[in-house]
C-alpha cells in the first residue's frame, strides 16, 4: 500500500502553495487584492491540511497544519520585504513581476491538483471512501486557488504587455 506516499505528496504540495502564497503576498503588498486574497487562500490550504490530518494517522504520514509556513507578515524579515514591495510597487516593472509570481503559484497549484488526482485514484482503488471524499473536497478547494491565479493573470497581462 503506497497511499501514504501519495498523501505525503499532496501535503508537500499544499505546503508549497502556502510558501508561494507568502512570497506573493509579501512581494505584491501594493496590489491590495492580491495581498488580501493570499490570506484567504492560506485559510483554504490550512483547512485542507486539517481535513486530511486524520487520514495521515491511518497511513503513517505526518499531516499537520503546524507544518504549514507561518502567515505572511509574521517575521521581521517578512515585514521588511513587504515594505520594500510597497516602495518598488510604484514602478512599471512590478506588473511583470506580478505575472511571474502568479504563474509560479499557478503551476504549484497544478502540481497540487494532479497530486490530488493521484491520491483520489488510489483511495478509490483501496475502497477508502472517507479518504476519497476528503480528497475530492480538498481538491475542489485547491482548484479555486488555481482558477483565481488564472483570472488574475488574464487581467494583469494585457496592461503589462502593452505599456
Amino acid at each position: 500500500m503506497k497511499l501514504g506516499l501519495a498523501l505525503g505528496d499532496v501535503c508537500e504540495a499544499e505546503g508549497e502553495v502556502g510558501r508561494q502564497l507568502n512570497v506573493l503576498g509579501e512581494r505584491h503588498k501594493a496590489d491590495h487584492d492580491v495581498f488580501h486574497l493570499t490570506e484567504t487562500l492560506q485559510l483554504i490550504a490550512r483547512a485542507n491540511i486539517g481535513r486530511l490530518a486524520p487520514h495521515g494517522e491511518r497511513y503513517g504520514v505526518r499531516v499537520d497544519a503546524e507544518d504549514m509556513p507561518e502567515e505572511h507578515g509574521a517575521s521581521l524579515l517578512e515585514k521588511a520585504r513587504e515594505k520594500t514591495s510597497e516602495l518598488v510597487g510604484r514602478r512599471p516593472e512590478s506588473g511583470l513581476l506580478l505575472i511571474r509570481d502568479l504563474r509560479k503559484l499557478h503551476l504549484i497549484y497544478a502540481e497540487a491538483s494532479i497530486n490530488y488526482v493521484i491520491l483520489g485514484q488510489g483511495a478509490q482503488a483501496a475502497r477508502d471512501r472517507e479518504l476519497h471524499e476528503a480528497c475530492s473536497g480538498c481538491h475542489a478547494q485547491t482548484l479555486r486557488g488555481m482558477k483565481w491565479t488564472l483570472t488574475r493573470i488574464k487581467i494583469a497581462a494585457p496592461q503589462v504587455l502593452t505599456s
Binding site: 501594493a30 487584492d33 510604484r90 505599456s163
Partner: peptide, 22 residues
C-alpha cells in the same frame, strides 16, 4: 471592443496609475 478581460474597476485603474502604466 476589448473583451479579453473583465472591465477594469477603478481601484485597479488607480493601481495602474500608481505603477505608471495608465
Amino acid at each position: 471592443i476589448a473583451s479579453f478581460a473583465p472591465p477594469t474597476h477603478v481601484m485597479e485603474m488607480v493601481r495602474y496609475m500608481e505603477e505608471g502604466v495608465l
